[in-house]
Design a protein around this nucleic acid. Structure first.
Lengths: 201, 201
DNA sequence: TGTTGACTCACTATAACTAGTGATGAGGCT
DNA sequence: AGCCTCATCACTAGTTATAGTGAGTCAACA
C-alpha cells in the first residue's frame, strides 16, 4: 500500500485546544508534512495560495452567521486543496454541501482518520486497497465483550449464541490478530477504538 | 522548585478531538503520570474513587442543563482531587464557582498550563499523607506480569515463587482494587503507569 | 458452479483460574 | 506484647478457558 506522507494541512480553528486535538490525531496518521494553525479567516485569505495546502480544515464557526458564502470563492486561490468543514455547532446543511467532507467535533479519531485518508486517496491516483478490517463484525462484538470483562458464557447469552460459537470466534480472533492474552486484546481494542476505556471492567 | 510529575488526570469530555487537544497540551507540560479519557459522566461515577485522580477536568456540557447540581456531591468519592471546569459554551457563573478553576475552550496553551500548574502547587502544599500505593510491591510485580499476558505458572517461575503464592497475590489484588477481570486490570495498570502499552502482549 | 469466508454448533481432553479456608514466619507500629 | 501487613505455601472443589477437530448453512464472488 502506498501512503502519502507529505500532505500540507491548514487548520482554521479559533480554539487552541481543538487545534491541538486535530493536530494530535493527524500527527498520529503520519501523513502530514506540515500542519499550519490559523485562528481567523481574515488574516489568511491572501496568504492561502502561498502556503499551497493540500488539505484545509476549517471550523465553520469562523464564517459567523453569514451562511450564504461561497466556499469556492473564499478559497479560490487554493484550487488543488480539498476543503473539509469542521463542525462544532449547528451549521446549515446546504452550506455544508460545498465542502469536500465534514468532520464533526464528536467524530472519533478513527472516523477522522478515515475521512482524511479518503480525501487524500481521492487526490492520489494510486489507491490500493485500504486496510480492510482485520476482524469480522461478529468477531469484533465478541472481542469487545471479552475486553469488557465478560466470560464466554456471559458473552454467549448477551449475543444469543452458543458458548461454542463464542469460543469459535475467540479462536479466530486469536488466529487473526496473533494476540493470545486478554490484556493484549484489551490494548488492541483500545488502540483500534473498538471500545472506550471507561467501558472496560 | 519542586515539580510534580506524577499527576493522575481524568478528563471528562465527550469530544475525542477536544480530549486529544487537552491531552496534547498537558503532555507537553510533563506533569502527568496518566491521562484518562471519559466521554460520559454516568458511566464513571462509581469508578472515580478507584482511579484516584489528582485532577479531574470536566466539560460542563456533560451536566446538561441541570445547573443546580452540587459538584461536591457528584465527586464526593474523590476528596483529594481538584475539579476543573472546562467550558466550551455558556455556563452559569454561580454553577462555575463550585470548581477549583475554569478552563475555557478559547484559552491558549500557556494559560491552560498556568492554571493546571497553579492547581498542582496548591495541592502539594497540603499533602499530609503520601498516598501510598494501594498495592504492595510484590502485588504490583504480579499485576504487571498478569497484564503482560503471563499465566500464573509463568509468573511463578519468573518471580521464583510457588504458583500458590501467585494466586494468593492475585486474590489480594482483586480484593484491594475490586477489579476482577484481566482487561480491567490492564486499564488499571496502564492508567497507573505500572506498565507501558508496548510491553503488553 | 465451485470456492471462500462468516457464522453457527458440537465433542474431547487438558490446562488454568477462582474461591474459600488455613497456616507460618518476618517485620513494623503502638 | 499485641496487632497488622506482607510474603510465602497448601488443599479442595468447582468453574472456565484452550486446543484440536469436525461440520452444516448461507451469501458473495469469480
Amino acid at each position: 500500500m502506498i501512503t502519502q506522507t507529505n500532505q500540507r494541512i491548514i487548520i482554521i480553528e479559533p480554539s487552541t485546544i481543538v487545534f491541538a486535538g486535530l493536530q494530535s490525531i493527524i500527527e498520529r496518521m503520519h501523513i502530514a508534512e506540515s500542519i499550519y494553525h490559523v485562528t481567523e479567516l481574515d488574516t489568511i485569505t491572501q496568504k492561502l495560495a502561498q502556503l499551497r495546502a493540500d488539505i484545509i480544515i476549517v471550523n465553520t464557526a469562523v464564517f459567523g452567521f453569514h451562511k450564504n458564502l461561497s466556499i469556492k470563492s473564499i478559497f479560490k486561490d487554493c484550487t488543488h486543496a480539498s476543503i473539509i468543514a469542521f463542525v462544532s455547532q449547528y451549521s446549515d446543511s446546504q452550506f455544508l454541501k460545498q465542502f469536500d467532507d465534514i468532520i464533526d467535533i464528536y467524530d472519533d479519531a478513527q472516523t477522522i482518520s478515515a475521512k482524511i485518508r479518503h480525501i487524500i486517496e481521492q487526490d492520489t491516483i494510486d489507491i490500493t486497497e485500504t486496510d480492510t478490517t482485520e476482524l469480522s463484525e461478529r468477531e469484533q462484538e465478541v472481542l469487545i465483550a471479552v475486553v469488557k470483562g465478560l466470560i464466554n458464557k456471559e458473552i454467549a447469552s448477551t449475543l444469543n449464541i452458543s458458548i461454542h460459537t463464542v469460543m469459535s470466534h475467540r479462536k479466530n480472533i486469536t488466529r487473526k490478530t496473533g494476540i493470545k492474552s486478554i490484556s493484549g486484546l484489551t490494548v488492541y481494542a483500545l488502540f483500534n477504538n473498538l471500545i472506550k476505556q471507561e467501558d472496560v471492567q
